[in-house]
Design a binder for these strands. Structure first.
Lengths: 132, 132
DNA sequence: TAACATTATGTAATAATATAACATTACTTA
DNA sequence: TAAGTAATGTTATATTATTACATAATGTTA
């Protein structure tokens, strides 16, 4: 049985906005844009973000302190995330590559640590920007 | 010929401290600990950190906003970084695995983006913490 | 349904992380 | 030695995130 089938009011407001913009967005930018919906304080946003990350509806782009909706419709919990980031235009895409995720999920480190999650961020120039 | 063979005063102070503590440390913690060496302001620390990251002497653990000395003695420029992070005790280790780095360096994204850098962070429980 | 636990909310204050702007000094190198 | 580049010093401020505390809504179960 799936946990958390329904989102709370604030969680839904924040998720709706993140899904609408469809690109990584920062917490305070979210705040400014959902104030008309009644969300007044940073903490209300951060709490919603925490929950949405936890249940896999969104991901955090750690190197950018930004949040983006998950594109893998079946991603219930984000344990395996990979992104490509253009250092010029800052475009971010989620990488869906089953070979890559399989490789990383099975990666065994020498210290014998058991992993339950990873985040991978690739940096470079997207096609558009490498032409410029 | 190698660029930047010698570090500036502030860069050296910051690097010395990071190498001494030998674990990830945050910018303001560095600041507090190097004030006796004459570094007074956050910006002095951040500027040194930026340069040290750029030349590969240290790495940033993005998910923790912390900095750690590079363990790969030959790592001049950090283009390929991988870490394991214990979510319980927060111990961080740099992963040196030539297969992994080869795999990721050669990873080709479907959008044809050309990568010049990546950062990978694995999360889990280290051996000590998984026993507890 | 009453009691309890859990989750979510509201609000204010503040902590922690990072950069902008500007003036000055030191280091390279042609 | 002049010009360009890199580093420094300093103040102020921007940005990101959490603590603390009170309250309300929701879920669980006896």
């Amino acid at each position: 049985m799936l946990k958390q089938e329904t989102l709370s009011k604030n969680q839904q407001i924040v998720l709706d906005y993140i899904e609408k913009v469809n690109e990584p967005i920062k917490a305070y930018s979210i705040l400014h844009n959902v104030q008309k919906k009644g969300i007044k304080a940073p903490l209300q946003v951060y709490r919603a973000l925490d929950k949405l990350v936890e249940i896999g509806k969104i991901h955090k782009i750690e190197s950018r302190n930004a949040f983006v909706a998950c594109k893998n419709s079946n991603c219930q919990i984000s344990k395996a995330t990979a992104f490509s980031i253009c250092e010029s235009c800052e475009e971010v895409s989620e990488i869906s590559d089953s070979k890559l995720s399989k490789y990383l999920k099975n990666f065994q480190d020498k210290a014998g640590m058991k992993f339950n999650k990873y985040n991978l961020e690739f940096f470079g120039l997207c096609k558009k920007c490498s032409v410029k």
